[in-house]
Design a protein around this nucleic acid. Sequence first.
DNA 1: CGCTCAGTTGATCATTATCAACTTGGGTGG
DNA 2: CCACCCAAGTTGATAATGATCAACTGAGCG
Lengths: 220, 220
Amino acid sequence: MRGLSICSGLEIEDLFHLDRIVSKVSARAGGAIFDEGEPATNRFIVTHGCVRIYRLLGDGRRQIFGFLFPGDFLGLTIGKEYAYSAEAVVESHLCRFQQHELEELVGRFPALEKRLMGATINELVVAQDQMVLLGRKSAEEKVATMLLTLSKRAEQRGMPGNPVSLPMTRSDLGDYLGLTTESVSRTMTLLKTGGLIRLEAANQVHLIELEKLEDMTEGF
Amino acid sequence: MRGLSICSGLEIEDLFHLDRIVSKVSARAGGAIFDEGEPATNRFIVTHGCVRIYRLLGDGRRQIFGFLFPGDFLGLTIGKEYAYSAEAVVESHLCRFQQHELEELVGRFPALEKRLMGATINELVVAQDQMVLLGRKSAEEKVATMLLTLSKRAEQRGMPGNPVSLPMTRSDLGDYLGLTTESVSRTMTLLKTGGLIRLEAANQVHLIELEKLEDMTEGF
DNA sequence: CGCTCAGTTGATCATTATCAACTTGGGTGG
DNA sequence: CCACCCAAGTTGATAATGATCAACTGAGCG
């Protein structure tokens, strides 16, 4: 879903059809977009802001699967229900499709199907990257990887990649990286002390030693 | 890719076409099927045995993304190269397609495209489950979850789900669960001592207290 | 002005990793 | 066919990483 503009590459007429089908929705910071288990009647594309997708365990432990930014697709599911919850990190805007309307559109424009398939496989690769991070990386490597990932994705959508902006809280980052809030904070301080990054503000990170950070993410 | 027989639901004539395209390959225990970074010219379906897919970090740390069993699809990729490596856990047999032949077939039988899409989304959901496990579960919860997952998947393909058979080593399981070999072993002993499981042999696990094990996986 | 929430830092604890020794079982060669 | 050998598994002792509990700081907002 990430790093992909689902609509790009479609013909004008396709977009025309899209336009008839789409409605716009917005969510304020912290607002729910949909919840795990809810009937999955809609699909979304983020147009502005930042969205976190996550699942909760029975006792409240949370794993965030990723953060979505403008251009990212949201809501594909295999069954009748969403397999995860989605919330706005900051005030966000999204395009919304009815699931059946999207299906119909896909029937009419096979190119869309290929595009959705590519997006999904891409999601899978991203998920695998995250499994490596969660299962085998140290706190320092996790944070370095996250910073570089967010930086690259910002650049991909034409935003500045350095400094990296972190609209989400430390607690969000912890639940994304398999760490606690405190560990994220400490690790940031560690990287700062080591001269690898500079913290303009808590959510504005300058990447100073890019090469060292990159080495860190590869496990050398 | 898991839990899915890509061919089921196809018409006889489709299968006929499949038959002309497919070749059979086998790999002995420990043998490579393909490596990360290699040109992704083939797609596979496991027909017999067990396959592990994984990625390595620069210093040799390994994260196993999953184990594939008969019926599971293998080798979908977004770019020109495999994004992970695949090895046989035990002597295994696979059907092999040329990537372009599969593409051609998909062009001819659109039902296949939907099926592949469903399989890929399913893979994504499985990957998300694994992220929850890796990021937020304790060693005991990880092992319990793994046992139940393997049990259910065995049943899905008509094999006995209890006792669970574990063709892979403790080290494989460790790299799958984000633990060390020793921790996997210790945790098994713990579950055994607690009366939740019984170890017939190291790779044959009887699930005794199913309900307690299931509670464990949900985070209560 | 002060309240609240996010973030940071400190002290201590717990879980899991690491290092090491020992056991077991399956396969092979004498 | 048996004995040995090696890989896999288990168990023990200790260490380290990150979690937990707690206090404090600072920025944004009513």
